[in-house]
Amino acid sequence: MKRFFILSMVLLLLLAACSKGGNTSGDAAGDMPVDGTKGNSQDIQEGQNPADSQENQEVDQEKGYEFVFNGVTIAMHSKMEPILEKLGEPMEYFEAESCALPGMEKIYTYSGFEILTYEKEGVDYVLSVVILDDSVSTKEGIYLYSDLDSLIEKYGDDYTKELNTYKYESGQSQLVFLVEDDEITSIEYLATMEQ
């Protein structure tokens, strides 16, 4: 009888110890905030080209791709506060609570680009930078409406492509170009998030 009781207790303990640990509160704090376009624009298949261009090799693999505006460097996953101090007041600001879960999505619009942030433990970090017009360019010199050849020349052919999207990855960032009729129509820096 004793053995049966002990076995039961062991089973209980096993149940308590098994399965995955980590966050269990259901709030998934620290995960990616719910973004309006996630799952549509960035679902890109793996590419096959291993070669890097010179420019691509120059990208700091730790920081990944960085956007630079008026001497202010904006890397993905950087804290937003010091960037905001340097850039000054945005032309427009939008914030929205994440649906049900804690955290706030924030969009800061400046002349020629906007910065989206995610919130983790009360601190805002850069989630994405979207170039809005051809008054600004990537650090490597690609503008909206540049042609595809310029893109490949600057960033090389180590991209993944799905439909008309070219995605480059470096560190914890992605640089995504949308190309229509041989012309770049969208440029977006994205922070790579763990699932």
Binding site: T37, Y93, V130
Partner: peptide, 13 residues
């Protein structure tokens, strides 16, 4: 509502 964000361009609608 203070401002309305524009929709970002998608590769596939």
């Amino acid at each position: 509502v203070k401002s309305i964000p524009k929709g970002r361009k998608l590769s596939n609608y």
